[in-house]
Amino acid sequence: MDRRTVLRATVAGGAAAFSGSIWAGAASAAPAQPGPSPYGALRTADANGIQLPANFTSRVIARSRQSVPGTSYSWHDAPDGGACFVAGTGWIYVSNSEITPGGGASAIRFDADGGIASAYRILSGTNQNCAGGATPWDTWLSCEEVSRGYVYETYPQGGITAVRRAAMGRFKHEAAACDPDRRVIYLTEDESNGCLYRFRPTTWGSLSSGTLEVLVAGTSTSGPVTWARVPDPSATSTLTRNQVSGAKRFNGGEGCWYADGTCWFTTKGDNRVWAYDAVNQRIELSYDDSLVSGSAPLTGVDNITGTRSGDLYVAEDGGNMEINIITPAGVVAPFLRITGQSSSEICGPAFSPDGTRLYLSSQRGTSGSSSGGITYEVRGPFRA
């Protein structure tokens, strides 16, 4: 298999430095290696063309330019980043649309037993909405992946107009991850010489004002870091990534996920997964395909999400259309594989609030075009 693996993120001094994190107990910087999945081997493809472990099933919940089942709402093109939110006794899955012009985001509401109750638009008139992130106050940050793009705060429940959050900076936004402990939001930048940012709201829970900072470090792939204020987040005359001397460069920032003191983010240009230890303000190179012994089981690192069990799920843009699991024990293995869609990418992995369902999209489906997107739900005995 032509894919990559992930190093366990650790900091100097061993496991104590990651105390409380989802990777507490990882005591060395040895790379995680391919191994048996906790769910077992993938079986033959199901009727939807998805290979899954035993006891897991899939269903299609939406197709681009077709009505979401049980509704009259036409699903958007090129479904990308997504997240789930509690909604009464059910939940909502939100998905971006990575097209220009048009973009925006849509939502599907599910009732308590998983039936589709409604579908609707929550953001319109934006461009190339790629990834984003959920906030602790149950809004969705939809990010424009264009030069000097914006972040839009949207409302999954519907009925409230999305708001452009200019204070979060104008750059080629990719993903966002909220850190409620330090009351900041981490932001990735999809440029070959991009940066990692964090936004400090003036008031936690309000994104109308605040301070944009950029990560500053040397050229090393691990070690201590600092943060510096970006003088002009609007990038009126100078791009944000070029305003602070010493800002660390990352090759194509993609997915971003925060849990228990660690912000995980991916870079597609060099096929890496990074860990920022927010407690001790250090970064570690957590994954690099050149550090794998033998064939690597993960390629095309892109969107990333996690679970309460501490498992990370990394979706592939390319590769062989897999989502790979990375366990706290340092094992990386395929969790699912979509067949017959080699011209697509997997986007928007997100778990339902109870952790029993995983949502994801194949951005271009079997057609290889943005109008062929397919959004899926996978059910099964996920690790608690």
Rank of each mutant, 00 (worst) to 15 (best):
R3T: 13
R4Q: 01
G14V: 08
G14K: 10
G14Q: 09
A15E: 11
W23C: 12
A29P: 12
A29S: 13
A30I: 14
Q33R: 11
G35E: 05
S37V: 13
P38C: 10
Y39P: 04
A41G: 15
T44G: 00
P53A: 00
R59E: 12
V60M: 07
A62Q: 04
R65L: 02
S67H: 06
P69F: 05
W75P: 04
P79G: 09
A83M: 02
W91D: 12
V94E: 10
N96H: 03
S97E: 10
S97D: 04
I99A: 00
R109G: 06
R109K: 05
F110E: 08
F110Y: 07
D111H: 13
A112S: 08
D113M: 14
D113N: 14
G114I: 15
S118T: 11
Y120F: 11
Y120S: 02
Y120R: 09
S124H: 11
G125D: 04
T126G: 02
N127T: 06
N127G: 00
G132Q: 01
P136E: 01
T139F: 07
W140L: 11
C143Q: 08
R148G: 06
E153F: 03
T154A: 04
Q157T: 15
M168L: 01
I185W: 01
T188W: 01
G194E: 12
C195S: 14
R198I: 05
G205Y: 08
G205K: 05
G210P: 03
L212M: 03
L212A: 08
E213Y: 04
G218V: 15
S222D: 14
G223W: 03
T226R: 11
P231Q: 02
D232S: 02
A235W: 07
S245G: 11
K248G: 08
F250H: 10
G252K: 12
Y258T: 14
F265K: 05
N271V: 03
N271M: 00
D277G: 10
N280M: 03
I283F: 02
E284H: 06
E284S: 06
L291W: 05
L291C: 05
V292L: 00
A296M: 06
L298H: 04
T299S: 13
T299D: 14
V301L: 03
T305C: 07
G310L: 06
G310K: 11
Y313W: 06
A315S: 08
G318V: 01
N320D: 13
N320A: 10
I326D: 00
P328L: 02
V331P: 02
A333I: 01
Q341Y: 03
S343W: 10
G348C: 07
F351G: 03
F351W: 02
P353F: 03
D354E: 06
T356I: 09
Y359F: 15
R364P: 07
G373D: 03
F382Q: 12
F382C: 12
A384T: 13
